[in-house]
Design a protein around this nucleic acid. Structure first.
Lengths: 232, 232
DNA sequence: TTCATACTTCGATCGTAACCGAAGCATCTC
DNA sequence: GAGATGCTTCGGTTACGATCGAAGTATGAA
């Protein structure tokens, strides 16, 4: 009866609304200070501090001191993957915090999922890469083709450099808003960075949504075309 | 701030030890009555009833009335997948309920993971199928080869029948005890059923562990050989 | 040094939810 | 029908943990 890993510990860590809000905020990928996280969770600084200590002790967060600030971030991309998995599940059961605020549509269109692009744009990008033969899909697995390596190289992605990292190049990640897969892994991260570097898009403050400039959106859509017969 | 799916709801559902024990018990794959689950969780029947109602309302469980019994089971394999994901994560962070009881080694050797084989034997089986060319792996994706279809057909697995189901044939599932992948999906389920039908192994009462008979174990190991140069 | 900012620790309050006893339904057996 | 079993609902207790005020520590600025 006392066998196996303990679900309850991490469950209760994520089960508190304040902590869940903090984790969701950190899914934005960048490290945040205790004060910022307190604001995101809607609690005072003392309370936030206590929550953050628990999350860190639980192995979900890491802390980095920098001057008089303490920056917190998700411990690794395993945490991000887990959170996205739970979000997808929660969405599938209708557990939405659905006061469909003004930022909601922007979030569905394009947002950051830990370190890569998600939402409508993220799903479209992967679909287009598969249709164009740059990525081949097998079950839940994705792999970059030789053609894809050339293609992405021409955009400015150094694939061979990514290959040397310990992290998988391509991973599929279930998108909670679209209920379909988008591209994660080091390649997904590199692509998003590429768009941000080129100025096609930028992050927004205090939200996980990604804002595409009109020009950036035009170029993105041109770069990742999809079949007209899209039924969604 | 109030954007996206609500992690906290399902987090708190799994965060209570009694409920976590119930869910873990149901990972055994078979439906259990309220009384059995109360015993598994170590609470009285009234308390269990309340927990079960919450889990059902949260979409994690389904209920089936049969006579004066009520059988509860995981709502679908999405729940199983989620739970296994969390177990793997919890194990990776050392969140074990580790009073390494007498049943622990048996659980690591062979256990049921919702509906398929996990543990050392589960990992070995997948490794062997990949080595033998029956399954090809690409990233996290798995697919059955033509050779594999013939091979498994000779054991008595009707692959074409499985293909017609809506559920994916092959899926990789991260094993929390071995920290490597084992085979899930409808094929994983069919293989386990096959072993049970042949009498090679049987389920144990009140535990997720799978007991192999000496003869069954011999045949299993012969059927799924692995390279001698196994470093584990 | 003095003051301000960032954060943690302590202590006390308070609400919620887990828990069980007892009573109430439902279903099966005889 | 009467009695047993399986489970739910109700009511009241209890304990845990989330919360914040206040005080304490660390870092930086003046």
């Amino acid at each position: 009866m006392k066998e196996g890993p303990d679900i309850a510990q991490i469950g209760s860590l994520m089960g508190d609304p304040a902590r869940a809000n903090m984790l969701t905020a950190l899914m934005g990928g960048r490290a945040l200070t205790a004060t910022e996280l307190a604001a995101a969770a809607g609690v005072t600084l003392q309370t936030a501090s206590s929550h953050l200590a628990k999350l860190e002790a639980g192995g979900l967060l890491t802390q980095r001191k920098q001057g008089r600030h303490r920056y917190f971030a998700l411990a690794d991309d395993g945490v991000g993957k887990l959170l996205e998995g739970i979000m997808g599940f929660a969405a599938s059961r209708g557990h939405l915090r659905h006061r469909p605020g003004p930022k909601e549509p922007a979030l569905r269109k394009a947002r950051i999922c830990y370190d890569h692009l998600a939402g409508d744009f993220g799903v479209r990008m992967l679909d287009s890469l598969i249709e164009g033969g740059s990525i081949s899909a097998m079950g839940e697995g994705l792999s970059l083709t030789a053609q894809g390596e050339t293609h992405l190289g021409s955009i400015g992605i150094d694939v061979s450099g990514l290959r040397s990292s310990r992290r998988p190049l391509c991973r599929s990640c279930l998108d909670w808003s679209e209920r379909r897969a988008h591209l994660a892994g080091s390649l997904g991260k590199a692509l998003l960075s590429n768009f941000l570097d080129k100025g096609w898009a930028r992050r927004t403050e205090n939200s996980r949504s990604i804002f595409f400039t009109p020009e950036g959106e035009r170029r993105f859509l041109a770069l990742f075309p999809i079949e007209a017969s899209d039924l969604s």
